[in-house]
C-alpha cells in the first residue's frame, strides 16, 4: 500500500498572515459592513473589531474555508451584535422624525391617495448593472427609522427568518411585520422618486 502515507487524514495547518489582511480584505469587509449599517464610521469600527477578533482566533482558523469567508463570517456576527446592542439600549434618536406615516398613502376610505398611487418605474436590471441601484437603495434606507432599516437589512440582505430577526431586535412578530410593511411602502416610493428623477 504505497499511497497510504500520502493520503494522511491530518490536514496541513493553513497559515494566514495577519499583516496582509488590511490590504487584501479591508475594502471588501468595509463595503460589506457599509451596505448593511450605512454609517461609514460604524462600518470602520466593525471592520476593526472583526480583524482584532480574527487575530485572537487565528489559531482556530483551520483552512476549511478561504480566509475571506472566515473573516466575513466574523463580520456578520459583529453586525448582528451591533443591531442587538442598539435595540437593547433602545437607542432612539430624539430628533428622529423619520417614521413612515401610513396616512400619507391612503385616504379615510383606505384607498390610495392620488399622489401616492404607484407609478411605473423602470426595470431595475439596468440600474443594478450601472450600480445606481445600490446608491439609491442606501440613501432610501437612510430615511427610514433606524430599527426599521435594520429589520429590512436582516430580512432582505441576510435572508434571516422573522423569528431570528424578532430575537435580535427584541420585537414581537406583530412589530416585525408592521416594520417590514412600512419599510417596503416607503422604500418603493423613495426608489420611484430617485429612479424617475434620474431617468427623466
Amino acid at each position: 500500500m504505497p499511497n497510504q502515507n500520502e493520503t494522511s487524514n491530518s490536514p496541513k495547518p493553513v497559515e494566514t498572515n495577519p499583516e496582509t489582511w488590511v490590504d487584501e480584505y479591508g475594502d471588501y469587509l468595509y463595503r460589506y459592513a457599509l451596505m448593511r449599517v450605512r454609517d461609514p464610521n460604524q462600518a470602520e469600527d466593525l471592520v476593526q473589531e472583526t480583524l482584532l477578533a480574527a487575530l485572537k482566533a487565528r489559531k482556530n482558523f483551520a483552512g476549511q474555508s478561504t480566509v475571506k469567508t472566515w473573516l466575513v463570517g466574523i463580520l456578520k456576527h459583529k453586525i448582528i451584535d451591533f443591531f442587538r446592542k442598539n435595540s437593547r439600549e433602545k437607542l432612539v434618536d430624539p430628533s428622529d422624525n423619520s417614521d413612515v406615516e401610513l396616512n400619507d398613502f391612503f385616504d379615510k376610505n383606505k384607498q390610495w391617495l392620488p399622489n401616492a398611487v404607484p407609478n411605473d418605474f423602470p426595470n431595475p436590471t439596468q440600474a443594478i448593472e450601472n450600480e445606481e441601484f445600490t446608491t439609491a437603495l442606501l440613501s432610501c434606507l437612510e430615511k427610514l427609522p433606524p430599527r426599521t432599516a435594520e429589520a429590512f437589512s436582516l430580512r432582505e440582505m441576510e435572508d434571516m427568518s422573522s423569528e431570528e430577526i424578532c430575537n435580535i431586535l427584541d420585537i414581537t412578530p406583530n412589530n416585525f411585520w408592521v416594520m417590514m410593511h412600512r419599510a417596503r411602502i416607503a422604500l418603493r416610493k423613495c426608489l420611484e422618486n430617485s429612479w424617475l428623477n434620474q431617468n427623466k
Binding site: V22, D23, G26, D27, L29, Y30, R31, L34, M35, P40, E44, V47, Q48, L51, E131, E132, T134, T135
Partner: peptide, 14 residues
C-alpha cells in the same frame, strides 16, 4: 457597487 473603499488613514491605523 459604487461604495467607497476603506479610508487610507483607517487602513494605516489598523
Amino acid at each position: 457597487c459604487s461604495l467607497k473603499p476603506l479610508p487610507e488613514q483607517r487602513k494605516a491605523e489598523l
